[in-house]
Amino acid sequence: MSHTGSKILNLNLQIWRQAGPDQPGALKAYQLSGISTDMSFLEMLDILNEQLIAKGEEPVAFDHDCREGICGTCGVMINGQAHGPDNATTTCQLHMRRFNDGDTIVIEPWRAKAFPVVRDLVVNRSAFDRIIQSGGYVSVNTGGAPDANAIPVAGHKQQEAMAAAACIGCGACVASCKNASAMLFVSAKVSHLASLPQGQTERSKRVVSMVATMDKEQFGNCTNTGECEAACPAGIKLTNIAQLNREYMKAVLFSGE
């Protein structure tokens, strides 16, 4: 079965190949033909890899898992754009109908000091985990929680929290930012918890601690270019960064932190 209007593409791929973390890497050219516009971008890479294996060349390593845009595992730079040309879209949700016959597609890994390349298009994003470890939670043990309705949350506050909590932790914000800044990621978690009554107790401690870890992990500074917001597949807004700035200032200037 194919959708009406599906076409076949021939593509020139330029893919970053790097054998390991400490090895040199380079862009390598591949010709790929017979790609249906119904395919997803990752299925296109699957086909390339099948062809490489048949030829005896090691397949391209790339991270992916759910292939429906929620796990945040996938993510590559496609012609210099994080997750490719579409807004609010992860690499796995990008479809080949977005490309034209004869296109050249340059595929590179996320690049940031804090995200070292593991192999080919795979990078190590554990810096994000360490940021969350430094305070991105509500300190509540299992058991003994009050009845859920005992903590009322106004509908609009919940929506605000949900919009920030939608972050999938893919790292596109860092990858697309000209400064490799992680502010959008950090701000999403800070805003999520700061918007809810549950997050109030640790509000100041959390933001100070998370920002300190973010700085320590060698992410760059935010210069308010807004590129992260445009690249974010989960629609996290710049207003979160403003809130992060506010939260941080309040915490440092007026709290005990």
Partner: peptide
């Protein structure tokens, strides 16, 4: 910021 991205993108 320059240190935060040592390797640059080709595109």
């Amino acid at each position: 910021n320059a240190k935060a991205r040592v390797d640059q993108y080709a595109v």
